[in-house]
Nucleic acid binder design. Structure first.
Length: 418
RNA sequence: GUGGACGUAGCUCAGCUGGUAGAGCACCCGGUUGUGGUCCGGGAUGUCGCGGGUUCGAGCCCCGUCGUUCACCCCA
């Protein structure tokens, strides 16, 4: 009697061989530029005190108000599976006093994040992000560096059909001034109930509405970029100047909306053309008040999060990624019980020297084992049976050409490295 | 959370106006004793997502449920 099968929880993505190799490749490409720029790994818990996200990300955001996996642990604490990375990094930096040393603090992370949304293509309840944070410096040059690092990751992957959208959300004064006028403007519009509710939570959201009539209605709405304070405008102009110098193309998008409350100043998004509705493959920006909000000193920071799942989808859509299975250098086919023992020790020995070795286990017939060797893509094959063991010599067969040469078992390593 | 489409072997799918399931690929075995890729022969495989209903009879009809997918919403 077979037991009932258990399925994975709804909306999670799983990467099994051979696609897992492509996933791994994407993740490595995306984060490699960060370590070249001196960012160091920070490894954090996937669950945190719920309060961290309420205070850090903002209670009014959709992410916090309706998409968090929150539960009570056995000690009665409210715990939440992390929905994003920045808040946790800030918490850890403050907790361990990383900001007491030389600034900026530069870290990178990689891992799973969780959001209880309705799944669809490119949107999962557990998803993977890599990201970096540079904390403690206001210099526009670091804004440009952070953006350049993200862009380098996508380029390293081979992506072409994406664009960088850029804007500035300004400082607190800029936003306050703009909000007054925006609310006045919105008051003149006829909004349905759901839209009005969204506007009440965050009036900027209306800029993001996909309906044509709303786009038309918002065409003349006051734009935040026109309300930037002198220092904000100057900072942003310097960032774009640096990006120009770096040869990184971007589109100014004054209507960009970000879903997390902590963003200020320079804000950006990477959007891919072939992905459908969930087209954002990465995004980030500056966050001036976050650290203080979380009980730390008043330092600003900037960072990004890149979606590994979506970058993989994008790479597949562009056809710039393949799946590579593990390929061994040597495939050993043991014949008989005694040979199996020999194969085991021989493989172990060669692996210690760095050779990739696989063994055909399971007492398959020679023909079947050869077939297996062929499919594995192994470069060389040896058959290990009675005669080979007693003579101490094997036939080293190169699969591609089919040619084989006699080699002493003791000098296999040397023969393989010729 | 809202709306639409879909759910048949490991994979891609077929299954006529309802009569108790098929193809290709993949997999396994063999084509004379210990050497793969082609070819030939043979073989295994499904509670037709799950539960209920209509019917003499349902993979095909109805309801529910779970899942996937597309859009809204949101965002990576």
């Amino acid at each position: 009697m077979s037991q009932q099968k258990i399925a994975a929880p709804k909306g999670v993505s799983e990467y099994t061989p051979p696609r897992s190799s492509a996933f791994d490749h994407v993740r490595n490409c995306l984060i490699a530029p960060a370590s070249k720029a001196g960012y160091q790994l920070i490894e954090l818990p996937v669950f945190e005190d719920t309060e961290l996200f309420k205070r850090g990300v903002g209670e009014s955001t959709d992410v916090v108000s309706k998409e968090m996996y929150t539960f009570e642990d056995r000690g009665g604490r409210s715990i939440t599976l992390r929905p994003e990375g920045t808040a946790g990094v800030m918490r850890s930096v403050i907790e361990h006093g990383l900001d007491r040393g030389q600034l900026p603090v530069k870290v990178w992370y990689s891992g799973q994040f969780f959001r209880a949304e309705r799944p669809q293509a490119g949107r999962y309840r557990q998803f993977y992000q890599v990201g970096i944070e540079a904390i403690g410096l206001d210099d526009p040059a670091i804004d440009a560096e952070v953006i350049a690092i993200a862009d380098a990751g996508f380029k390293a992957l081979g992506l072409k059909q994406y664009r960088l959208e850029l804007t500035s959300l300004g400082d607190a004064q800029s936003r306050t001034a703009h909000k007054v006028d925006l609310l006045k403007f919105i008051a003149t519009l006829q909004l349905d109930e759901a839209t009005a509710a969204r506007a009440a939570i965050n009036p900027l959201r209306l800029f993001d509405d996909k309906r044509d009539e709303m786009k038309k209605a918002m065409a003349d709405a006051p734009l935040l970029v026109n309300y930037l304070s002198d220092s904000s405008r100057e900072h942003f102009e310097t960032v774009t100047k640096y990006l120009d110098a770096l040869g990184i193309s971007y589109q100014l998008n004054p209507r960009m909306v970000r879903g997390l409350d902590y963003y200020t100043g320079t804000t950006f998004e990477f959007v891919h053309d072939l992905l459908g509705a969930q087209s954002g493959i990465g995004g980030g920006g500056r966050y001036d008040g976050l650290m203080e909000q979380l009980g730390g000193q008043s330092l600003s920071g900037i960072g990004f999060g890149l979606g590994v799942d979506r970058a993989l989808l994008a790479a597949e859509a562009e056809g710039v990624i393949g799946q590579e299975a593990f390929v061994s250098d040597l495939f050993i086919i043991p014949l008989g019980e005694g040979a199996k023992l020999q194969a085991l020790t021989l493989a172990h020995d060669l692996r210690c020297k760095g050779v990739r070795v696989e063994i055909a286990f399971g007492d398959r017939a020679l023909k079947g084992a050869m077939k297996g060797a062929d499919k594995s893509g192994a470069t060389y094959v040896i058959v290990l049976g009675e005669s080979e063991i007693s003579s101490g010599t094997v036939e080293l067969k190169e699969m591609k050409s089919g040619a084989s040469t006699s080699v002493k078992i003791d000098s296999l390593f040397e023969a393989l490295n010729k």
